[in-house]
Design a protein around this nucleic acid. Structure first.
Lengths: 142, 142
DNA sequence: TATTGTTATACTCTATAACTATA
DNA sequence: TATAGTTATAGAGTATAACAATA
């Protein structure tokens, strides 16, 4: 049915538009800090605690070999470090340095502030509804 | 206030999660078609009609020089063409070839189907609310 | 044998600066 | 002069395949 299809398309179009707005915002807030969006993403993931390479690659949906070069570059800038895993000598734990943590915090705050500014006109109820609808989408099995 | 901050953070977190889910979906649906996500994006923009390089670079938020190389690669694959602008001899109009249009359609459909599948559990009312809330975010001045 | 992470390689994406041609 | 698009260059992101070390 045409109306149903149109409604679906409208929602998908909205979601895609939102994705691009957020991507652009991510890039805009990362650049002034001397980070690419991907680097900002990696540092922000590490705000949640140290991670191994394999886990990181899964979280970020990139190959381990791609991650190796990203980590190389950030390690050279002393923003993170490869620490030995306590029991598994093959593995390493990627941890933020003090500088890296500071920068990650700045990136996270800058981005969050910008997104919050965009959502300032939403009522508390609208926020709750929005979070609920989005969760429905991103976590299909609830 | 702690609660307000937490609520904001929750919404921002949801939005970021949604962005990553959609990005991954974009990558997953593009790859089998032999396209990078950026190439798929470019082709899908052109589904809306021919565009000049400067307009395209604004729409996609990338530098014109970055676009030049992307267009080069897709032109080499005969997915799009540089046509002369009718009145301005400096400018060109990037248009999809028949093959490019077919591929762009496939990419668009594949992505749309996957996103629709994710939103299948939302009621018509929830959809309308969601579109409205998102529009509020992406078009601040309405 | 399976897993962790790296290396080697090849492309693609991206920005900056300088350039050509046209308006 | 200003604008449309390109070229040259350099760095970053990415995947595939093959590899070393350890589990």
């Amino acid at each position: 049915m045409a109306t149903t299809k149109a409604r679906h398309t409208e929602l998908v179009g909205s979601l895609v538009g939102l994705m691009h707005v957020l991507q652009d915002l991510y890039a805009e807030t990362s650049r002034p800090l001397g980070l690419t969006p991907q680097q900002a993403h990696l540092l922000c993931v590490l705000l949640g605690g140290p991670q191994g390479m394999t886990d990181l690659s899964r979280i970020m949906s990139i190959e381990r070999s791609s991650l190796t070069s990203m980590v190389d570059r950030l390690e050279r800038r002393s923003l993170l470090a490869r620490n030995p895993h306590p029991t598994d000598r093959r593995a390493c734990q990627i941890t933020l340095t003090t500088d890296g943590h500071t920068l990650a915090d700045q990136a996270h705050t800058a981005f969050t502030d910008r997104v919050e500014a965009l959502t300032v006109s939403l009522s508390p109820t609208a926020r709750k509804t929005l979070v609920s609808a989005i969760t429905n989408i991103t976590e299909p099995g609830q």
